[in-house]
Design a protein around this nucleic acid. Structure first.
Lengths: 107, 107
DNA sequence: TTTTAGTACCTTGCAATGAACAGTACTGTG
DNA sequence: CACAGTACTGTTCATTGCAAGGTACTAAAA
């Protein structure tokens, strides 16, 4: 899986998953890994940065399956940011896919 | 336009456009800029790298509209690389879009 | 009790690449 | 000649995912 493609997208993936419900870090890693190959070591610094920037808040919650979990919760600012990032992603991929189409059909 | 999304994709864009016909650098910049916002300063080092790696060959051609143009031509190796990169892109964006869908519909 | 395995979180140095900037060179036109 | 448009080049920097290497908690097995 091309590392460079992934840049900038992890952020979007995390935001998407948190839009609907709070999740803990390991869970985010697992959900994302279902679809794209990522490194766990990447996600935590990212979560910390986005929290620091005000997009998430965090809280601890005891778990019956292991150690306490640190949950991440999207803020209003985070939700707003997510929506603009999602738009950018769609605009961007449409542009690339358009180019792919043009490349294929000539001009 | 999110800079990080673009990483790794410029390569694909250039390869796509050259798959069907030889093009010169400035033309590539223009065609890509039609769809996504890029910096000219980025493309030439990329073209040089991909040429060095054997994916393109180059030739000069006089132009009636300005200075001579340096054309880029995809090699067989380049074509092969393009096809695998295209597959990766599609796999990757499918994965991300799947996550976006899941994020939206919950789990 | 200690060890192990699974769960869950954290840190650091590095590689890669797009942007921004600052040029150079060619050609035709005014 | 100067200018504008065409076309190409080089360098430094910021950003972020990877890989590697941990730490800590809990329950179950030895």
């Amino acid at each position: 899986m091309n590392v460079q493609f992934k840049k900038g997208v992890l952020e979007l993936c995390v935001l998407v998953l948190l839009d609907k419900k709070d999740r803990y870090g390991y869970e985010l890693v697992q959900k994302i890994s279902d679809q794209i190959d990522i490194s766990e070591g990447t996600v935590y610094p990212l979560l910390r940065r986005l929290t620091k920037e005000g997009y998430f808040t965090t809280y601890l919650k005891e778990s019956t399956e292991g150690p306490p979990r640190k949950y991440y919760k999207l803020t209003d600012v985070g939700r707003s940011y997510y929506q603009s990032l999602l738009e950018e992603w769609q605009e961007f991929t449409n542009g690339v896919n358009q180019l792919i189409k043009e490349g294929v059909i000539d001009d």
